[in-house]
Design a protein around this nucleic acid. Structure first.
Lengths: 212, 212
DNA sequence: CCCAAAATTGCAATGACTCCAAAAATTAAG
DNA sequence: CTTAATTTTTGGAGTCATTGCAATTTTGGG
């Protein structure tokens, strides 16, 4: 039972390094901070940093798995009779309306700016969108019981990942242009309607949840 | 007029380095080849390589601009009355039908494989899709004369870039799975129909070309 | 043939990342 | 409490992409 002590310490160390790194990144930008500096500031060796984080980008994007799985979770938890697309659109709309859409939280502006002027971080965002897409594809396959060779789940998945990434990019640009969170939220809600109107019926109705 | 001699030699050198590099990459994979090896094989110094190619990935993807601009060109050259989406879908369909779709050319299989097992190259592909998307957005703005703040051109653009990237990924996976080009073309043509059926009317009809 | 511009090169340095083996801390066992 | 096994941390050497700079060579044009 005391087995948890070591684990706890590891998690603490990891979290501390991540926090120190994030602080430095937000202060001076991603490329301007070296791993050596992070190690020094966190009072560990460079090798220890690499022990916890395989690459520099992982120091910035903690909780990546959570982000990548969010849309899948929304889809799994959709209401009976609701399609995957409608569930995703609904979740996005309500989170924009009640201010819980993460990229719009006050502290996030600086975060977004740092991403925007780091090519490495921008690429990482793209790869996260790709992984989000795969995750949704897997979820849709399970939910619909589609044939393994059927491309439709994956195509619909990429449309839903597209919706997500398009909104993210919108927020990123509008915030970078100095928009207030409330104004940006209003504008992005409008775009969400537009996005919806651009999707096809088939996409919008795919994978409606069966009665249990 | 003899001014072109230096330029010609530069182009030759550049092309030669690129060819040597591509040969090595196709033979041994992207990460397994170092810039130093390429320089040696091309009988130039490492600095000369960097003189022509800002990053290692640029040695693999030559003619990037051409690829990034292809969809924009298709759109600009669309028939009178034809929308942007229909033009793109038509070009893709015919190039798949007549075998001119580049990613399906015989020699391309190895190319695709090298991309697939190099994270760096996969990321570069994603960034090319992003740039394709921006290019299309600009084209649509010009073609429709939309307001600078209007998000619709960019949203439609990202849908069209999506169509392109989805087909590319399909080919990549099917070829990697050992499919013959002809079979893959047939399968991908089917997916293209599916893709079309997933797009919304609004997307399909956007930016119909006016009579001149 | 000579010169200024352009291209090529060598050298040194930075920074991310990997590998390996030694040391230090921690847990479990006696 | 002490020891042995295990894990974590560390130091150090090395690879590779990429950059900057100054020296050098090449080349087109006069």
């Amino acid at each position: 039972m005391a087995e948890g002590l070591r684990e706890r310490k590891k998690r603490q160390t990891r979290q501390y390094i991540s926090d120190v790194a994030t602080g430095l990144f937000l202060e001076r930008g991603f490329e301007a901070v070296t791993i050596a500096e992070i190690a020094e500031a966190a009072e560990v060796s460079v090798n220890t940093v690499y022990n916890y984080f395989p690459a520099k980008e992982d120091l910035f994007f903690d909780r990546e798995e959570e982000t990548v799985g969010r849309l899948s979770r929304w889809i799994e938890e959709r209401a009976v009779g609701e399609s995957a697309a409608v569930a995703v659109l609904r979740e996005l709309r309500t989170s924009l309306e009640d201010g819980s859409y993460a990229p719009l939280s006050p502290g996030f502006a600086r975060f977004m700016a740092v991403i925007q002027d780091s090519p490495a971080l921008s690429l990482r965002i793209m790869s996260m969108h790709e992984r989000t897409c795969h995750a949704i594809g897997d979820t849709l396959c399970e939910e619909t019981g589609a044939d393994p060779g059927d491309p439709e789940p994956m195509l619909v998945a990429s449309q839903l990942a597209w919706v997500n990434s398009v909104l993210f990019n919108s927020v990123q640009r509008l915030i970078a242009a100095g928009g207030e969170p409330a104004d940006v939220a209003r504008e992005v809600l409008g775009r969400l309607e537009l996005v919806t109107s651009l999707l096809g019926e088939r996409t919008l109705n795919y994978a409606a949840k069966n009665t249990p």
